[in-house]
Write a protein that binds this DNA or RNA. Sequence first.
DNA 1: TGAATTGCGTTATGATATAACGTATGGTAC
DNA 2: GTACCATACGTTATATCATAACGCAATTCA
Lengths: 138, 138
Amino acid sequence: MTAQKDMPDGRALTKNETLVFSALEAADQPLSAYAILDRVRDRGVRAPVQVYRALDRLVASGLAHRLESLNAFVACAHPHCDARGQTAFAICERCGKVTEFADPALDGHLAAWADKADFDAHSTTVELHGLCSDCRAT
Amino acid sequence: MTAQKDMPDGRALTKNETLVFSALEAADQPLSAYAILDRVRDRGVRAPVQVYRALDRLVASGLAHRLESLNAFVACAHPHCDARGQTAFAICERCGKVTEFADPALDGHLAAWADKADFDAHSTTVELHGLCSDCRAT
DNA sequence: TGAATTGCGTTATGATATAACGTATGGTAC
DNA sequence: GTACCATACGTTATATCATAACGCAATTCA
Ligand SMILES: [Zn+2]
Ligand SMILES: [Zn+2]
Ligand SMILES: [Zn+2]
Ligand SMILES: [Zn+2]
């Protein structure tokens, strides 16, 4: 009995949102929209646009994140993030594993720069590419 | 008489590299590869792949940068960056203007996180979206 | 009940990026 | 000089990522 997942505003996930989110949760790597589609086709989702619509809502709610440098998506690793992009990602170039992390000091630095430059930041993208701990070792 | 541009290793830009780089320099916004193609077609560049090949080399050398969150490219705003992605970008959602900045403290924080997580970072992407100083005012 | 809202399904298309192949050119070994 | 190599270029085709435009179904609420 998996717990019923809800959006942060309390409403339950729709059918397509549930299918897409489950696919992301089950994956050990980021998935492209089309890779998600492959995994939910047999549950009745036929077209890319249905996946993208579900992803739009999941990302907006913070239940999933888009990795801009991969054009791919991951389930949020935390109870829930908001959608402001305050989390950063470390992406392994070898095994594909993604580590999501929040670093308040980092946010502080970005906020300080924005303040000094009179830039009103709405969202931030921080993505590191490299080798994860496991892959460095080998 | 514009100065002849060179790669950081000293060699001169090739014909296609020059055309693509000039298009980026002339633009006041990031350009997609296809937008670049539109601007160099009349100089003999016919196909997307020619633009992508020139971009690959310009980005690898640090003369241009790829904005992951836009799938677009800009000329480097500095004398020259290396290709390690140590610069960050503030992107205005209203006017499209991009400000490239380097913040050693930011790099320091990312390096510290990577060290702690035993992650070997090869490159970093940092992109802020929001409103530039001019666009906030209006 | 009937209008508004939201999600779904279908078809078609647009936008971004690369594969696979051959040709041209300039440098270097002999 | 010529055989060889490495690098850039050109052409065609194709792969991958994302959205437009339309109508239908279910829910909410006046
Ligand atoms: Zn998250
Ligand atoms: Zn790894
Ligand atoms: Zn730069
Ligand atoms: Zn602006």
